[in-house]
Amino acid sequence: MSVNQVPDIVRKTLGLNKRDKIAYIINSDGTVTITRYETSEDDPILDKFLDFLAQDIEQNPQQIQPITSETLVRVQSLVGDMNIDLNAPLSDKDE
C-alpha cells in the first residue's frame, strides 16, 4: 500500500483540510479528475424508506401496536450486553 499526500496546490485549490477526502475519476483518455469529496446528509434510500413508513402508517393505523414486555425481553435477549456508542466515528474499514 502506498500513501501519498495531496500536493499543497491541489489542497488549496480544492479547499481541503487535513482530514478531508478527495474523489477522483480516471477518464478514458488517461486524465484524472479530482474533486473534493462532499458528504451528504441526504440519503435517498433512507428518505424513500421513511416515506414508505409514513404512507403505511397513514394507510394502516390499525397495525400500530405498543411494544409488549415480552417483546422487550426478547429484544434484550438478542442484544445481550452490547454497548454501542452511536457518536463514535466509524473505522476506515467500516466507512
Results as ranks from 00 to 15, higher is better:
residue 66 P to S: 10
residue 51 D to E: 12
residue 59 Q to Y: 06
residue 37 Y to P: 00
residue 79 V to G: 08
residue 20 D to E: 05
residue 83 N to I: 02
residue 4 N to W: 11
residue 94 D to G: 02
residue 88 A to G: 08
residue 21 K to D: 14
residue 31 T to L: 04
residue 70 E to N: 09
residue 14 L to Y: 03
residue 70 E to H: 03
residue 31 T to C: 00
residue 17 N to G: 12
residue 54 A to R: 10
residue 15 G to R: 09
residue 54 A to D: 11
residue 48 K to N: 11
residue 56 D to A: 13
residue 13 T to D: 00
residue 15 G to W: 08
residue 8 D to Y: 09
residue 78 L to K: 15
residue 7 P to E: 03
residue 47 D to K: 04
residue 87 N to H: 11
residue 2 S to R: 07
residue 74 R to C: 05
residue 29 D to K: 04
residue 25 I to S: 07
residue 78 L to A: 15
residue 68 T to Q: 07
residue 82 M to W: 01
residue 74 R to Q: 13
residue 9 I to T: 07
residue 22 I to W: 05
residue 3 V to P: 00
residue 65 Q to M: 10
residue 87 N to K: 09
residue 56 D to I: 03
residue 94 D to W: 00
residue 90 L to F: 15
residue 58 E to G: 06
residue 53 L to R: 12
residue 90 L to A: 14
residue 27 N to C: 00
residue 86 L to N: 06
residue 21 K to A: 09
residue 87 N to I: 05
residue 20 D to G: 00
residue 45 I to R: 15
residue 39 T to V: 05
residue 67 I to Y: 10
residue 32 V to R: 02
residue 16 L to G: 02
residue 87 N to S: 13
residue 38 E to V: 07
residue 17 N to K: 13
residue 53 L to W: 06
residue 27 N to I: 01
residue 17 N to L: 08
residue 20 D to V: 00
residue 88 A to Q: 14
residue 56 D to P: 06
residue 86 L to G: 01
residue 71 T to N: 12
residue 14 L to F: 04
residue 51 D to Y: 04
residue 90 L to Y: 15
residue 57 I to A: 09
residue 56 D to L: 11
residue 71 T to D: 14
residue 75 V to R: 11
residue 81 D to L: 00
residue 16 L to I: 01
residue 55 Q to I: 10
residue 33 T to R: 13
residue 84 I to Y: 12
residue 66 P to Q: 07
residue 22 I to D: 01
residue 82 M to C: 04
residue 26 I to Y: 05
residue 24 Y to T: 00
residue 17 N to M: 08
residue 57 I to M: 09
residue 33 T to A: 10
residue 1 M to Q: 08
residue 59 Q to C: 05
residue 57 I to D: 03
residue 93 K to D: 12
residue 69 S to V: 09
residue 58 E to C: 04
residue 38 E to G: 11
residue 57 I to W: 06
residue 16 L to E: 06
residue 76 Q to S: 08
residue 46 L to F: 13
residue 44 P to I: 09
residue 40 S to D: 14
residue 84 I to C: 06
residue 72 L to F: 08
residue 93 K to Q: 10
residue 27 N to A: 01
residue 1 M to L: 10
residue 67 I to R: 14
residue 85 D to M: 03
residue 94 D to Q: 14
residue 31 T to A: 02
residue 52 F to H: 10
residue 79 V to A: 09
residue 66 P to L: 09
residue 18 K to A: 09
residue 14 L to G: 03
residue 63 Q to W: 10
residue 24 Y to W: 14
residue 18 K to Q: 11
residue 37 Y to I: 03
residue 86 L to Y: 12
residue 36 R to F: 02
residue 10 V to G: 05
residue 72 L to E: 10
residue 5 Q to K: 13
residue 14 L to W: 02
residue 4 N to C: 07
residue 85 D to A: 02
residue 22 I to K: 01
residue 45 I to Y: 15
residue 17 N to W: 03
residue 49 F to P: 02
residue 23 A to M: 01
residue 42 D to A: 08
residue 18 K to L: 07
residue 33 T to Y: 09
residue 47 D to V: 11
residue 6 V to K: 02
residue 19 R to E: 13
residue 48 K to D: 04
residue 89 P to Y: 03
residue 7 P to W: 12
residue 83 N to A: 14
residue 2 S to G: 05
residue 38 E to D: 15
residue 13 T to R: 15
residue 93 K to H: 09
residue 54 A to L: 08
residue 44 P to H: 00
